[in-house]
Design a protein around this nucleic acid. Structure first.
Length: 339
DNA sequence: CATCGATGTTGAG
DNA sequence: TCAACCTCGATGG
C-alpha cells in the first residue's frame, strides 16, 4: 500500500468532493453490502485520516473506516474537484474534463505514484490512488466495451468492494484490508491505538510522544518506525529512506538513540510526509542537486537512496546496499554510511 | 499464460 | 513466525 502520504491525499479528495453531499453507498461486489446500507443516502460530514487509516463521517453519526492494506485502491471518476493543496507534479492538477474522465492528478498513467513526472501525456483516464497504476489498460478495455455514449455512473470494473457516488463524482474501492461502518466510539478506539501523525499539523506534543516512546523501547529502530502505534503512516519505503537520511544503523535499539537523533527522525518524517502529500511522490532525495534530482524524477529506480537498491553501489560511498529480512519485511540499508 | 511479489495488517499456531 | 487476505503489474516461459 501507499504509505501515509497517499491516504492523506485520498482523504483530501473526499473532503473536496464528498463532504457536504448526499452519497449513495453500495457494494457492487457484495461483501460490503450490509454495511453500505447503514450509510446509503446520508450526507458525508467529515473526511479524516490518521496514518494509513481513513475515516469518513456521515450525518447519522456513523463512520466508514477504510484501510487499503497492501494493494487496496480508490478509483475516482466524474467531474472531480481537485483539492488545491495537492500540487500536481506534472502541472496538470486541477484540470478536469467531461464526466467519467479526468486528467490524472499526478502521473499520466493514472496512478498517484510511481510514474515519471516529466511525461507529458495527457490523455483521459480514470484516476487511481493507492495501488500501482492500472488505468491505461483498463481505459482501453472499458472504452471498447462501453463504446459511444458515456454511461453514468460508470459500470463497475472488477471487484468493487464499495462505491461512493454523488451526482458528480464516483469513487470505487477495491482490494482493501478494512472497509467497515462503525460508530464514533469505535473510531476513537482505533485512533487511540495509533501513534502521532503530523499530517494535519505537527505539534510539540506529537514530537515529544514519539521521542519518549522510541527512547523507552529496546526494539530496534527499524521496527519502531514501522510500528503504527509508535508513529503513524510510515511504511517500508519511508522507513528505509529515513534511516539512511539519518545515517542510522537500522538495528540500533530505540533506547540507545540520543534525544537529538530521535527528534531528527520525527522532524524528517514531518518533512517527508508534507512533501509526499503535496507532490504525490515519495521523494526522499529532495536534497540532491538539480541534475540528480532530474534523474531521480525521470526514473523510478533512481528515486531512492537505498529502497530496492540491494547490490547497487551506495550513492554516497559506493558500498553495496544490503537487503535483509526483518520482521517479515525487506530492509534496505548501507552498512557503511549507516554503520 | 503462469507465477511472483508488493508502499500492510491480522490472527492462528 | 507465518499464512491469509486480495489485486494486478512485472517477469519468465
Amino acid at each position: 500500500m501507499p504509505e501515509g502520504h497517499s491516504v492523506h491525499r485520498i482523504t483530501r479528495q473526499f473532503a473536496a468532493n464528498f463532504v457536504g453531499r448526499a452519497v449513495s453507498v453500495s457494494s457492487p461486489q457484495g461483501r460490503f453490502a450490509s454495511d453500505a446500507a447503514l450509510i446509503d443516502g446520508q450526507v458525508m460530514t467529515d473526511a479524516h485520516a490518521v496514518g494509513k487509516q481513513m475515516f469518513l463521517e456521515f450525518a447519522n453519526g456513523l463512520w466508514l473506516r477504510v484501510h487499503l492494506g497492501m494493494y487496496g485502491a480508490w478509483d475516482f471518476a466524474g467531474d472531480i474537484q481537485w483539492d488545491a493543496t495537492l500540487a500536481s507534479a506534472n502541472g496538470r492538477m486541477g484540470q478536469t474534463n467531461q464526466r467519467g474522465t479526468v486528467l490524472p492528478a499526478v502521473s499520466p498513467g493514472g496512478s498517484d505514484e510511481d510514474a515519471p513526472i516529466l511525461d507529458s501525456a495527457g490523455e483521459n483516464s480514470l484516476h487511481s490512488i493507492g495501488a500501482p497504476r492500472r488505468t491505461r489498460v483498463r481505459m482501453a478495455e472499458s472504452e471498447k466495451a462501453q463504446s459511444p455514449s458515456e454511461t453514468w455512473p460508470p459500470e463497475p470494473v472488477g471487484q468493487v468492494r464499495a462505491r461512493l457516488l454523488t451526482d458528480e463524482v464516483c469513487a470505487d474501492l477495491r482490494g482493501p484490508t478494512a472497509c467497515e461502518v462503525i460508530d464514533a466510539a469505535r473510531v476513537a478506539e482505533v485512533i487511540d491505538r495509533l501513534g502521532p501523525d503530523p499530517a494535519d499539523g505537527d505539534t510539540p506534543d506529537d514530537e515529544q510522544r514519539f521521542v519518549s516512546t522510541v527512547r523507552r523501547k529496546p526494539t530496534v529502530i527499524a521496527l519502531l518506525l514501522m510500528d503504527q502505534t509508535v508513529v503513524s503512516g510510515i511504511g517500508n519505503v519511508y522507513r528505509a529512506e529515513m534511516l539512511y537520511r539519518a545515517r542510522l544503523n537500522p538495528h540500533t535499539p530505540g533506547r540507545q538513540l540520543t534525544e537529538e537523533t530521535a527528534r531528527g527522525l520525527w522532524r524528517d518524517w514531518v518533512h517527508l510526509l508534507r512533501l509526499g502529500i503535496e507532490t504525490g511522490q515519495m521523494m526522499t532525495m529532495d536534497d540532491l542537486d538539480a541534475d540528480a534530482y532530474r534523474a531521480a524524477m525521470a526514473n523510478r529506480a533512481d528515486r531512492h537512496w537505498v529502497y530496492k537498491r540491494e547490490g547497487l553501489p551506495c550513492r554516497t560511498c559506493g558500498t553495496h546496499i544490503v537487503l535483509e529480512e526483518l520482521g517479515g519485511r525487506k530492509l534496505y540499508w548501507c552498512p557503511r554510511c549507516q554503520a
